[in-house]
């Protein structure tokens, strides 16, 4: 494997993070141009060729399928095995790593994304089931200037320590503010109750969301 020159980094500003999130979205493949066999790595020019390959070489294996997803407003065609979750598709097919792998059984909320306005656990839904729905990930929220106050407030209040679960919280928080622009602290706690932070940052999320709600409300007016 060729090595790119290792990069070094400095302080990450809101603009830089938003830019990286936008770049990640832009890098998602829009359409399949090659079809790689996940079992032996051979690459084919068409889906039909891949199916033929399966019939000939892997007759006992399930043939991958193509799925069309709408992620952060962008249409993406991906090839995956039918049992793959949306979480797997986001990371391994689309390069989006904001939804995090933690519990892998729907208990922690770290992989939360938004599907048609509702928070869902991407580790618990098959990617194939997501066709036809609008999916928004934390990258989409970070790249949208409207939600800068939420990101700002999260950073201002240290609503993260190690930061691993943070995107899941932030996605849930955005979803809450979408349907309830002025939540109370109790409503925030309820909304976030499906998210686990092993660093124990819960009080900071309430502070951040309350502040962001106020700012977004003022900006909206």
């Amino acid at each position: 494997m060729e090595e790119k020159k290792a990069s070094v980094g400095a302080r990450v500003t809101q603009e830089a993070a938003a830019g990286q999130a936008a770049a990640a979205i832009n890098s998602m493949p829009a359409a399949l141009t090659t079809f790689r066999c996940p079992l032996d790595g051979r690459v084919f020019a068409s889906y039909a060729d891949l199916v033929d390959h399966y019939n000939a070489e892997h007759p006992d294996s399930v043939v991958p399928i193509t799925v069309n997803l709408t992620i952060n407003g962008k249409n993406c065609e991906i090839l995956l095995e039918p049992h793959w979750t949306l979480k797997q598709a986001l990371q391994f097919k689309l390069g989006l790593t904001g939804a995090k792998h933690m519990c892998d059984r729907g208990a922690c909320g770290s992989c939360t994304v938004i599907m048609d306005g509702r928070p869902i656990l991407s580790c618990q839904i098959l990617a194939a089931e997501c066709e036809g729905f609008a999916i928004q990930t934390v990258e989409g929220i970070a790249a949208d200037p409207k939600w800068k106050p939420l990101i700002d407030a999260y950073c201002k209040w240290d609503a993260m320590q190690c930061g691993y679960c943070t995107p899941g919280f932030l996605v849930t928080a955005k979803c809450l503010l979408d349907r309830n622009p002025h939540p109370t602290e109790t409503e925030i706690k309820k909304a976030l109750s499906g998210n686990i932070c092993i660093c124990g940052t819960y009080p900071r999320h309430s502070q951040a969301i309350l502040e962001a709600a106020e700012i977004i409300g003022k900006e909206g007016n």
């Binding site: 494997m1 302080r11 990450v12 500003t13 809101q14 830089a16 993070a17 938003a18 990286q20 999130a21 990640a24 790595g41 990371q91 391994f92 390069g95 989006l96 790593t97 904001g98 939804a99 995090k100 792998h101 990930t137 934390v138 990258e139 970070a142 990101i151 999260y154 950073c155 201002k156 209040w157 240290d158 609503a159 993260m160 930061g163 691993y164 943070t166 995107p167 932030l170």
Partner: peptide, 26 residues
């Protein structure tokens, strides 16, 4: 108080990469 962490924006925006997040071609 309230001085954002040096990498907080990367963490909040989901662009911070942890070990499990890395992939490579092939």
């Amino acid at each position: 108080p309230n001085k954002p962490g040096i990498l907080s924006y990367a963490q909040a925006s989901g662009v911070a990469k942890f070990g499990a997040d890395y992939t490579a071609p092939d």
